[in-house]
């Protein structure tokens, strides 16, 4: 059982929804980003999604892409991202960390070496946007064998015929992408999301968390109310991008977490 599994079991027992927050590792620099990360659990974040910077984030909108560029310009790498996780783990051994990014930096490092280092650093799960089930042999299966969760995205284009394939090697939770589009784009509507979540839950016992297009405490609450929780990324990253100090960013994160938790 990973920290992710334990956290969802606890939330479920408490009858609470999960709030997942995304930040980009090293944005705008490693020290600031570590400060924010350290403050996330106290702000009510149940699971941390840590973005791994990449030059070509094809599934992300401008907000996340610019965050990745800021991080890369400040010298962030996969190695330093792992270092950041180790530093976080010195003061927090419970909060699950999901590394989210694209395959090439992992492939460049070497899958086996990366998995050993990621686990050693205290990463619990992976979301790799450009690895669909068709490419499971690349990283998904080795990651599961190494004891890491591999969290898959399900989308509005994932029809009933395809859904079992998407769910087959997924663990930890299912990340439902509420819109067809990129991160930070159109707003998700709870009324549209609810039947989709039900459709997925009919085929899996895993928690279903909804992301993309959630930017306010109100939408966090309404989306979380029709799922097992929600993810906010771009709206948080935009605060950092606007140069807000970590304390202000964390206050915003707390308002989102409170929204999701009141669902």
């Amino acid at each position: 059982m990973t920290r992710i599994d334990a956290t969802f079991a606890r939330l479920s027992a408490e009858g609470k929804k999960a709030f997942v927050a995304y930040i980009m590792a090293g944005d705008p620099d490693m020290a600031t980003s570590l400060d924010v990360m350290r403050g996330l659990p106290a702000a009510g974040v149940d699971v941390i999604e840590l973005g791994l910077p990449f030059t070509d984030p094809m599934a992300d909108g401008p907000t996340i892409q610019l965050a990745g560029q800021r991080a890369l310009e400040a010298g962030m790498t996969l190695e330093k991202t792992l270092e950041m996780v180790r530093a976080f783990r010195e003061g927090d051994s419970d909060t699950p960390i999901v590394l989210m990014g694209y395959y090439n930096p992992i492939y460049a490092r070497g899958v086996d070496r990366f998995l050993a280092e990621a686990q050693d650093a205290g990463i619990d799960g992976l979301i790799v946007v450009d690895l669909p089930p068709e490419e499971d042999a690349e990283l998904c299966l080795p990651a599961q064998a190494a004891g890491l969760n591999f969290i898959r995205l399900a989308t509005p284009t994932t029809d009933d015929k395809r859904l079992p394939k998407v769910l087959q090697n997924t663990s930890g939770f299912v990340y439902y992408v509420s819109i067809t589009g990129i991160t930070g784009a159109a707003a998700a509507q709870a009324a549209d999301v609810a039947p989709e979540v039900a459709r997925i839950k009919a085929q899996t016992d895993l928690p279903v968390i909804v992301g993309f297009g959630i930017r306010s405490p109100e939408s966090a609450e309404s989306i979380a109310s029709v799922a097992d929780g929600c993810v906010v990324g771009s709206a948080i990253v935009a605060e950092l991008g606007a140069g807000k100090p970590p304390a202000d960013v964390l206050a915003f994160v707390k308002s989102l977490a409170d929204g999701a938790h009141s669902a």
Partner: peptide
């Protein structure tokens, strides 16, 4: 699998896969 040896493949997000 859309491969030429180890090259090629289908490394896209789930939205595009269908």
């Amino acid at each position: 699998q859309g491969r030429f040896g180890i090259f090629g493949g289908r490394f896209v997000s789930e939205t595009l896969m269908p």
